[in-house]
Simulated assay, not measured.
Amino acid sequence: MTMRRYKVTVTTAADGTATAYTPRVSGKLHSVHYVPDGANAYPNTVDVTITSEVTGEALVTRTNVAAAFVTYPRKDTAGADGTAALFAAGGTAVQDKPALGNDRIKIVLAQGGNAKVGAFHFLVD
């Protein structure tokens, strides 16, 4: 499968909130890049919550974002019996990229200022 980039530009409402979505995607979420607008960026009070639309699974949560960021979301994995998969008994959790199946990624902003702009890039493989 080829890595795909989905870019979503989000403009806040007068109350500083916004909700936006990617198109439907399928694959594993590799990374999320936030790029502030060069002339009209969100203030450093903006809160960003990114989830899977269908399940509500948390993918990225950031508060008081003051600059561009790149993050590589990972989720703990489990065995067939539901117990945590660990690298060694009592060790570090095994993590993997969150999977999306014909789902949209939902971006919710709060405290983002009036009519401010930013772009979110999602790399999905």
Rank of each mutant, 00 (worst) to 15 (best):
residue 123 L to P: 01
residue 7 K to R: 15
residue 61 T to A: 05
residue 125 D to H: 13
residue 95 Q to K: 15
residue 89 A to K: 13
residue 65 V to L: 00
residue 8 V to L: 05
residue 81 D to G: 14
residue 7 K to L: 05
residue 55 T to E: 09
residue 97 K to T: 12
residue 114 N to W: 07
residue 115 A to K: 13
residue 117 V to N: 07
residue 113 G to S: 11
residue 24 R to T: 14
residue 62 R to I: 08
residue 28 K to R: 12
residue 13 A to E: 11
residue 18 A to M: 04
residue 87 F to P: 01
residue 9 T to S: 11
residue 58 A to C: 14
residue 118 G to L: 04
residue 44 N to K: 08
residue 117 V to R: 07
residue 61 T to N: 06
residue 20 A to N: 06
residue 94 V to I: 15
residue 75 K to D: 15
residue 22 T to Q: 06
residue 91 G to C: 08
residue 19 T to K: 06
residue 91 G to M: 06
residue 71 T to P: 01
residue 80 A to Y: 10
residue 113 G to I: 07
residue 72 Y to E: 12
residue 46 V to C: 05
residue 120 F to Q: 01
residue 96 D to E: 15
residue 49 T to F: 03
residue 87 F to C: 11
residue 79 G to I: 07
residue 42 Y to G: 04
residue 111 Q to I: 09
residue 56 G to P: 05
residue 76 D to M: 13
residue 72 Y to W: 12
residue 103 D to Q: 11
residue 67 A to D: 13
residue 106 K to V: 08
residue 73 P to A: 09
residue 82 G to N: 06
residue 81 D to S: 12
residue 31 S to Q: 08
residue 77 T to N: 12
residue 46 V to A: 10
residue 119 A to R: 06
residue 71 T to N: 02
residue 107 I to S: 02
residue 42 Y to F: 09
residue 71 T to L: 11
residue 92 T to I: 15
residue 65 V to C: 02
residue 19 T to P: 03
residue 16 G to S: 01
residue 33 H to P: 00
residue 109 L to T: 01
residue 39 A to R: 07
residue 42 Y to A: 10
residue 17 T to V: 03
residue 10 V to S: 01
residue 17 T to C: 07
residue 68 A to K: 08
residue 101 G to D: 15
residue 98 P to H: 12
residue 88 A to G: 14
residue 21 Y to V: 02
residue 114 N to I: 08
residue 10 V to N: 01
residue 50 I to K: 08
residue 112 G to D: 08
residue 58 A to M: 15
residue 122 F to V: 06
residue 25 V to G: 09
residue 70 V to C: 05
residue 24 R to C: 03
residue 40 N to F: 05
residue 124 V to L: 13
residue 105 I to M: 09
residue 34 Y to M: 11
residue 62 R to E: 08
residue 66 A to M: 02
residue 74 R to K: 12
residue 73 P to L: 08
residue 118 G to H: 02
residue 110 A to P: 07
residue 10 V to W: 00
residue 91 G to E: 10
